[in-house]
């Protein structure tokens, strides 16, 4: 399809895509935890989304629409390319796809996340800061605090699990 960059719908498309691409890509990456493959699929998905953008109803959930297309692109990809490297097998992938409605949610999780982050202990917050703000690897943090990486992974996993439980509770309430 010819991408006429002057067309108003192209601008609308780009605006919607910019606002939602992270969610769509996050979905693809969760299903295909390989950035190279995920990027290929994302590219195919966004092209197909543009081709069929006329079918998208403005005001509806754009990321859900994109994810619905991405699902098929993921299946297509594996059907054509087969499974190589660290990729989920078909049963695991179908289970993941079957539970992927989570990615379509329009809940505002950021406020919930902020609320839950406040409830963490100081050192837990500090760990997340080192990881997400300073960009330290788990191994580096482990060396700094004189712990094993596997131990630290369990700690970080535990913190994420606490956050997740809190967010769920927060969203329900």
């Amino acid at each position: 399809m010819n991408m006429n960059h002057e067309k108003p719908e192209y601008k609308l498309y780009i605006r919607l895509l910019s606002a939602n691409q992270r969610r769509i890509y996050g979905f693809i990456y969760a299903m295909v935890p390989n950035h190279s493959v995920a990027e290929d699929i994302m590219q195919e998905t966004t092209l197909l989304m543009w081709e069929h953008f006329s079918k998208f109803q403005e005001g509806t959930n754009f990321s859900a629409w994109g994810i619905s297309i991405a699902r098929n692109m993921i299946r297509q990809y594996f059907r054509k390319k087969g499974r190589k490297g660290l990729v989920f097998d078909s049963q695991a992938l179908e289970n993941l796809i079957g539970q992927s409605d989570i990615f379509e949610s329009e809940d505002d999780k950021i406020d919930a996340l902020r609320h839950c982050f406040k409830k963490l202990r100081g050192n837990e917050k500090k760990l997340l800061e080192m990881r997400y703000i300073q960009g330290d690897s788990v191994r580096k943090i482990a060396e700094n605090v004189n712990r094993t990486t596997s131990h630290l992974y369990r700690v970080i996993a535990k913190i994420h699990n606490l956050l997740l439980k809190c967010i769920k509770k927060q969203l329900i309430s």
């Binding site: 079957g98 989570i102 999780k109 997400y132 967010i167």
Partner: peptide
């Protein structure tokens, strides 16, 4: 599978908003 998806989404959301949330705390 659902838990994995939730976690992936939470990490993605957290990465997006980490600066804003963490630094103010």
């Amino acid at each position: 599978a659902r838990y994995y998806n939730q976690l992936m989404l939470a990490v993605s959301d957290f990465q997006e908003s980490a600066k804003e949330i963490i630094l103010e705390e």
